[in-house]
């Protein structure tokens, strides 16, 4: 069972995770803008920029994050932003939120000049996460775990980051046992997806370059 302190931590993380939302004026464009590759590229770029800002607001609320060295805060976010955004995108596509937008968003991604070499693995990853039937609690905790990953480049005080990540991993592990009693491997499979997420991190810079050229 989760201790009352762990329950409190879980609700706090869930609450700040659910506050994340990209401003209405951007999601409205998703519906209104015309469908040229150029327009889609610009719209997706604007959405990604806004998504990073929303992600930073979530990160600032993570227990203990503001106590970290400022440059380590930057290094953690730089190292995890792409992975955290892929997780959030997987949730959006798998839970079809908000209704109807997900299909339109997928259409725009597929018509934005991005090469299929990157689009196919991206949507395969979303599907593979979908098969895990993750709950909102798991998405929010896994995002917090991804952000507070100590072994990112340029982190000076890894130990402090580890101390912040550990309680979140403990809650996530217990949560998996409680929410997926039929699948004792569920927690291990979640962590396995984090390894796959890292590969996207590496390919992302390459993808951006080829996308801009296209």
């Amino acid at each position: 069972e989760l201790t009352s302190e762990q329950q409190g931590l879980l609700h706090y993380i869930m609450d700040s995770y659910n506050r994340q939302c990209i401003p209405q004026y951007i999601t409205r464009k998703l519906l209104q803008e015309d469908f040229s590759a150029e327009e889609n590229f610009l719209l997706l770029t604007e959405m990604a920029t806004s998504h990073v800002q929303v992600l930073v607001e979530f990160t600032k609320k993570l227990p203990g994050f503001q106590t970290l060295d400022h440059e380590d805060q930057i290094a953690l976010l730089k190292g995890s932003a792409v992975e955290a955004m892929f997780l959030r995108s997987a949730e959006i596509f798998n839970r079809k939120m908000p209704h109807g937008h997900a299909d339109l968003l997928e259409e725009r991604i597929r018509n934005s000049g991005m090469s299929n070499d990157y689009i196919t693995p991206m949507f395969n990853f979303y599907k593979s996460l979908g098969e895990l039937k993750m709950t909102q609690e798991e998405y929010s905790l896994l995002t917090a775990v991804v952000i507070l990953t100590p072994d990112r480049q340029y982190i000076k005080d890894k130990e402090s980051v580890e101390k912040l990540q550990e309680p979140l991993l403990d809650v996530l592990q217990k949560l998996c046992q409680v929410q997926h009693p039929e699948n004792p491997q569920h927690f291990a499979r979640l962590l396995g997806r984090l390894t796959e997420l890292r590969t996207f991190n590496h390919h992302h810079a390459e993808m951006l370059m080829s996308w801009r050229v296209n």
Binding site: R19, L42, T45, E46, A48, T49, S50, V52, Q53, V54, V56, E57, K60, H70, Q73, I74, L77, K78, A81
Partner: peptide, 21 residues
């Protein structure tokens, strides 16, 4: 516009600012 900023610039600005409102 913000979209021309690199990832690090966006992060630095967002850490200092407050995009909640």
């Amino acid at each position: 516009p913000a979209s021309n900023l690199g990832l690090e610039d966006i992060i630095r600005k967002a850490l200092m600012g407050n995009f909640d409102d």
